[in-house]
Simulated scan of single mutants.
Amino acid sequence: MKQRKATHQKSVYSYNKWKKRKIFVMLSLLSLLGFCLVLTHNSTTTNTTTSRILTLASLRSHFIVQKPKIAFLFIARNRLPLDMLWDAFFKGQESRFSIFVHSRPGFLFNKANTRSEYFFNRQVNDSIQVDWGEASMIEAERILLRHALVDPLNERFVFLSDSFADTKEGRYNPKMAPLVPVYNWRKGSQWVVLTRKHAEVVVNDTTVFPMFQQHCKRRSLPEFWRDHPIPADTSIEHNCIPDEHYVQTLLAREGLEGEITRRSLTHSSWDLSSSKDPERRGWHPVTYKFSDATPTLIQSIKDTDNIYYETEYRREWCSSKGKPSRCFLFARKFTRPAAFRLLNMSVLGALRKATNKS
């Protein structure tokens, strides 16, 4: 009897001991589970906080107003003769512009051929051979626009060049009709400024450009006869200069003329009648030499508010948004000595004065 009681007590003791261990294990598991839940909560909170920070940063960057830029589109044979002048023009305004250069295929801007780092590696990689007075000039413009439109911040597109010739009269070819009717035929400067909307119209054009390729060609000029056969009868040729008609005619055909401001961009001196210098007469505008590059010349160009078109016997008063305005933003053609003189009188001169004062 005593032995049965002892066995029973031992059994109860073992049960109680096992029960306590079970409770301890359960409490431990609950504690561990609670700890894990805390870690998970903290981790979730951290992740949520990080996510919120990233989201806010993303929203902040999304709503930050980024300033629009001007795309400067250069058409050059090889190097840019007045790169040092452009370098002074661009300096300090890096966030406000982008540069694209169309040069001959294979030409690479580097320290060996340009003094300005703004032109390093800025040439497009799909350039073509460009001939003056041919539709290849238009295609070069379209290539530049395609590259510049990739950047959504580019809102204005400015065409620039080193130097090219010009001619007049008898340019419309009736073979362009009816796709390019004569009442849509327009003439203007190659050096234009386009809005993004108009640039996209030029790039997407598949109608007018082919017509220009086929029927808008320059007359065979004496100065080019060394490179081309002398024509049997030059009088029947249509002296069409594509780059002076294409953009204006295209926009007129698309019904966008009301959005265009009649204003020249680049000054060129074509009044050669009184010039005694044989080099200053012919198909090219006057070239400003070292002796021409004076503050008086620059001021006279800045003050120009009207242009007289000699062949059309009309005068055009320059305007911007319906108000009188100066006509020109740029000027051509200047020799390198002339450019250096102007640079010395303006930018370098100002730097020297600042240095002397300090």
Rank of each mutant, 00 (worst) to 15 (best):
D305W: 04
E223C: 08
T266V: 14
S95G: 08
F109P: 01
L145N: 03
F157Q: 08
E141H: 10
D205L: 10
S346K: 05
S269T: 11
L30T: 15
V247S: 00
A88D: 13
E155M: 07
D205Q: 06
V286H: 06
H215C: 01
K353E: 13
A232E: 10
E223Q: 06
S264Y: 11
D151W: 03
P81M: 07
E223D: 08
T40D: 12
H267S: 06
T266R: 11
L54D: 13
A135K: 02
T114E: 01
A76Q: 09
S103M: 04
A148P: 02
P210T: 03
A71S: 14
T49R: 15
H102Y: 06
A331F: 04
N78V: 01
I301W: 06
S163W: 09
R253L: 12
H62C: 09
E117M: 05
E134K: 14
E134F: 09
L82M: 09
E237A: 09
N356F: 01
T195N: 09
F157W: 08
S273I: 07
G170M: 09
K17Q: 15
Y308R: 10
K289G: 08
L85P: 00
H62R: 15
C318D: 02
E254W: 04
E310P: 01
I70N: 10
L54P: 00
R171F: 10
L272P: 00
V101H: 06
S273G: 04
R52L: 09
G255K: 05
Q93I: 05
S11N: 15
I138A: 03
L30D: 14
A165D: 14
S220A: 14
T287H: 02
V101P: 08
E312K: 15
E139Y: 09
A57D: 15
N173C: 11
R186P: 10
K187I: 13
E223A: 05
V130H: 02
R146P: 00
Q123V: 01
R79Y: 10
I23Q: 14
N306M: 07
G92V: 10
L54Q: 13
K67A: 15
S274M: 05
K168L: 09
F107W: 15
Y118Q: 07
L59F: 07
L348K: 14
L221T: 04
R262D: 03
L265E: 01
W132D: 07
K2H: 04
A76L: 15
V193K: 10
L160K: 06
R96C: 04
L221G: 00
K323R: 12
Q213C: 13
T296G: 02
V124F: 06
R281K: 11
T114M: 05
Y246Q: 00
I307M: 07
H102R: 14
L351R: 14
L37M: 12
P295I: 00
A338Y: 00
N154K: 07
Y313V: 08
D83S: 09
R219W: 02
F24M: 15
V38R: 05
N125V: 02
I53W: 04
P181L: 08
F159M: 05
D166Y: 08
I143F: 06
S264I: 00
L351S: 07
S116R: 06
R253F: 02
P152D: 06
M345I: 08
S11D: 12
D277A: 03
H102F: 09
P222A: 08
R171T: 06
S358W: 03
